[in-house]
Design a protein around this nucleic acid. Sequence first.
DNA 1: CTTGGGCATTAGAAAACCTAACTCTCAAAC
DNA 2: GTTTGAGAGTTAGGTTTTCTAATGCCCAAG
Lengths: 292, 292
Amino acid sequence: MPKKVTKQGLPPLDWLKVFEAAGRHGSFTAAAEEFGATQAAVSQRIRNLESWLGRQLFIRSARGVSLTVDGESYLPLVHDSLRALEQGTENLFGHSVREIRIAAQPSHLEMLLLPRLMAFSESHPELRIVTETVPKRLDFEAADDALHIRYGRGSWQGRDGVLLANEVLQPMAAPGQAAVWRQLPAIELRGERPGWSEWARVTGEPAPEAGPVSVDSMAHALRAARLGMGVVLGSRALAANLLLTGQLTCLPAAELATIDGYWLTWPPGLGKTKRQSEVLKALTKALSADLG
Amino acid sequence: MPKKVTKQGLPPLDWLKVFEAAGRHGSFTAAAEEFGATQAAVSQRIRNLESWLGRQLFIRSARGVSLTVDGESYLPLVHDSLRALEQGTENLFGHSVREIRIAAQPSHLEMLLLPRLMAFSESHPELRIVTETVPKRLDFEAADDALHIRYGRGSWQGRDGVLLANEVLQPMAAPGQAAVWRQLPAIELRGERPGWSEWARVTGEPAPEAGPVSVDSMAHALRAARLGMGVVLGSRALAANLLLTGQLTCLPAAELATIDGYWLTWPPGLGKTKRQSEVLKALTKALSADLG
DNA sequence: CTTGGGCATTAGAAAACCTAACTCTCAAAC
DNA sequence: GTTTGAGAGTTAGGTTTTCTAATGCCCAAG
């Protein structure tokens, strides 16, 4: 008696994708390019499909391929069905598929993300990047399905992530003042990062004299330095763009490495598909450029 | 600048097959059964799809799954598209997909194939078996895309194949005459198989006395024996069914093995897909049952 | 408070797939 | 009539994907 009448009237559908492209182009090579694969891969998939169907779909000649009558009849059906699927998928899920959301503190977005976004966007022109600013002290929600840029020492519970760069602090000042920086007042930065006293302790050098300026954000501290208000113990990562464009210079003084760092995190489960992990890799690469 | 704008707006389509089944059944387990796979496989594919789309499609509870709003919206589209593909594929290629053609000499079809076909058909109820008789001496065409049953010593150029059974000849007679078979006349079989004289030479026993009957086909020789016309040097393979049903009996005399055999052959390229190789395996198994 | 059905998760095995390197063929150019 | 080059086929072997088997969890029903 019938054991399992697995009504499987369909060939592996991914073969059809290839058939459609090859039929549309009239060329295996062209189809291969469309997929970013080799001609051999296309050739094999088509052969599999033909074998499954029990009929030839293409006529091979040394100069290229052309559809057989069977192939000619089959192509419109496949084309239309795939098109319908593509359209519908796009309509329903287009946003989440072609869009990438990144949440971070305003200063991280501005100083870390934005300067490096162009490089990424060029390698993935099909993706929209949507940023969301997160108020400084308000914590991220772990279940948020956006990407996050976070500062700390890792282990973001409930999320995966990679370290973009460790935080390294170094005295910096406006370029015009570099020569005389020992005379400049220190700009105080309150918060979680080690300050001038720690720097002096570790490096053994004397800390600059305290100045009138005290801020609570690295962005403000750097800006103050750019304005000539003193010497700042600046973050290499956040200042990278300012340094590159000559708006600020590193002073010839010892750096202070910390165990904290800038992380890119995402909800677990993201990055499981090839597509996603590639995007993540590219983004990580772009974001860690010139850091450290 | 954009490197490759691979307009790939579609998830791996085989994931959709699973989504469709799971959505239809409202159960991963049921969908798994439909595919002959495990529940874990379904679970993973669905998770991949959800991850690709960036949205949940199912709500999981301990008691089963149900579609989310997104899944609910997506299902009809997927269902309809796949259905269209399935229908169209069936219309265009249904015959070659659900049908299996086997060509052989009339006697091979009757004595080898038919008695064993039921077993095969039970394991593959969805397949029609179409037989084609080939005139005895007319050779098969190598490029024929049907399966062939051939007699010989293998190496069927341009075709793949498996040996079903070697030809083994043994004296046989009608059951009622078994006791007195030494008195029976020999039935002569002309053709490529070794005859009584070869049998006598190899076994050292005396050949039965020549009788009046001389035929040129094993089928006729066996029939003559059944009719009580003498003792035949019969083919175990071809006579298997007659022996099983008691219409003929093997006599207590030495057998004569040959290097020829019965082969199932097919055009190369068949059996490359999983589906096909399974069918071939099942058919081979059925056809070699009780042989030898 | 057990039981059992249904799903998730995992590591490891199995299958499918892809690429690289090569060949073959033919048409067009020389 | 050679030479050249584009395009497709073939193969072996490495890589990726997928599957399975085993296990754990959860919750509803008994």
